[in-house]
Amino acid sequence: MDVKDLQLKANSIRKSIVTMLNAAGSGHPGGAMGIADVLTFLYFSEMRVNPKDPHMSDRDRFVLSAAHMVPGLYATLAEAGFFPKEELTTLRKFGSRLEGHTVRNLDIGVETTGGSLGQGVSIACGMAAAAKVDGASWRTYCIVGDGESNEGSVWEAALFGSKFELDNLVFIIDRNNIQLSGTGQEVMPLDPVADKWRAFNWNVIEIDGNSFDDIAGAFRTAREVKHRPTCIVANTVPGKGVSFMENKAEWHGKTPDDEQTKQALAELDSLNANG
């Protein structure tokens, strides 16, 4: 899939995110919009997954450790054909398969239950280690929030990943600098984040997380590096694609009303036309 097609997919995913959060009335748009390009690349270019056979034993594993970004994952899975897009507007509703944080359900492509930060990182390490024990070829990918990295258990996982040389494991740190209570700098400064991961002996690649060229290059390098896990520090724009959401901490955890939704969808449509 070329860059133009990936951009169209990402834009469609962003529109789904806006639409589903408007319908849900609560949830987290900021991070989901920002990470949409990485999710698009993972599901449409990088990972070995098959929506027609979601239980496939040698599928690549994806763990959303920052599980509040789940609208982005659901929108991507629906875009990829794991379940009908119509289901997206059931987000958070009673009886829905789409909970407000991830719940393991391989039928719809969701690998892990999340919602308590700093845990998916460990699960991803365990998956990668199990693949090593079996000599299996499948790889494990895990999106980690920068705010999530306040949790000490993230750094326990960092120690584990390098000790066991998990070169079949890629973490993507969504470096968007917003958390629930404000900017990362206000809540708990993380910089120099890339140096921290380097100090834990990971293969670290810093990229523009909203550039498909950067994203593609990083995942390519990750496959080539042996004996070390890779940490891609993806600098992303929270709320990417919608002018009034971009880089606004207030959009970390609030949803667009009907008028804002209309404006957001119009802006995203115009990106398609201009792109």
Binding site: I123, C125, M127, A129, A130, F160
Partner: peptide, 17 residues
């Protein structure tokens, strides 16, 4: 190592595999 939280998550990931 002395990482009981990570141990539990790693064990979960292995079990799911």
């Amino acid at each position: 190592g002395i990482c009981e939280q990570n141990m539990a998550g790693v064990a979960a990931g292995m079990a799911l595999s």
